[in-house]
């Protein structure tokens, strides 16, 4: 039994490695399109730079909600990095479509875990994305280096990287969980729309959530969406530090564990509900 387990582990690793390699090759098919797309993704940032420049010109204040004009530009640049980690385009719709269309049964009859497969597929996507997007990202950050106050210290940088990696996993499990609603509902597009809306607005992608005060600000800060964009950017800019940073990372980790459990539970019970007909 123990020997079987020892033999099973390398072969399993080999399977996952093969899956990862296939996914990477698949993602590299349209690499030119991919690189151009990455560079273009920064175009909305140009309009944001001019918009906030005009807002600061109109207000004559040095800071808005604790952010200077330079902070705002740096914030939007950093949210682009954070969203590059946490965004999972097409994951939820893909899962729901596979459930509805019956494609999901391939995971039920083959010895491959669906959630693991999808996670590896996204890891491959992100690896390729950063491989191809590194040059456009480096170019944009180099051109915009004047908006930053230099590199943060090692501890802040470690916390930033940790928040990005957890942001990736939170983004994945949140989207996968939404997709798995397809086991219970035939059409999940409207729910997915609400989810996308929440993600866009509550993640801090549009504006730093510090701009919101009162109960609305409090509500935004209780949501896991902030870890998808706002939280890593705020760490890098030093807006969250000390005990608040440690507490924030702990809460992010707790959200991640809760989402993994929820996703696994949804898949477990969803598969029990699933009925596939035909060949």
């Amino acid at each position: 039994m123990a020997a079987a387990a020892i033999h099973a582990s390398p072969s399993k690793l080999k399977t996952w490695w093969t899956i990862l390699r296939i996914c990477i090759e698949e993602r590299l098919v349209y690499r030119g399109d991919f690189a151009l797309g990455t560079l273009m993704r920064f175009l909305p940032l140009v309009t944001q730079v001019f918009l906030w420049s005009a807002v600061f010109a109109g207000t004559k204040q040095q800071e808005i909600a604790g952010y200077s004009y330079r902070d705002f530009v740096a914030y939007y640049l950093l949210t682009n990095v954070a969203r590059a980690f946490s965004s999972m385009p097409g994951l939820a719709t893909g899962i729901a479509r596979q459930v509805r269309g019956g494609e999901i049964k391939k995971f039920l009859i083959q010895p491959v875990d669906m959630v693991g497969f999808l996670l590896l597929s996204r890891v491959a996507h992100k690896l390729v994305y950063y491989g191809v997007a590194l040059a456009p990202f480096a170019l944009v950050f180099y051109l915009c280096r004047g908006f930053f106050n230099g590199w943060p210290d090692a501890a802040t940088m470690t916390a930033f990287v940790a928040s990005l990696l957890m942001g990736f996993l939170i983004g994945f499990y949140m989207e996968a969980l939404m997709g798995m609603l397809g086991f219970w509902m035939l059409e999940v597009s409207s729910l997915l729309f609400v989810f996308i809306l929440f993600t866009f607005f509550f993640s801090g992608h549009m504006f730093p959530i510090d701009m919101l005060s009162g109960w609305l600000g409090w509500f935004f800060r209780q949501m896991p969406f902030q870890y998808l964009a706002y939280f890593p950017a705020a760490i890098f800019l030093g807006k969250i530090s000390g005990p608040d940073l440690a507490w924030g990372l702990a809460v992010e980790f707790a959200w991640l564990i809760a989402l993994i459990i929820a996703c696994r539970t949804a898949f477990h019970y969803g598969v029990k509900r699933y009925a596939g007909y035909g060949g």
Binding site: V55, G58, K60, I64
Partner: peptide, 8 residues
């Protein structure tokens, strides 16, 4: 809420 106009 933070500015009276877009641009001065």
């Amino acid at each position: 809420e933070y500015t009276p106009s877009i641009g001065a």
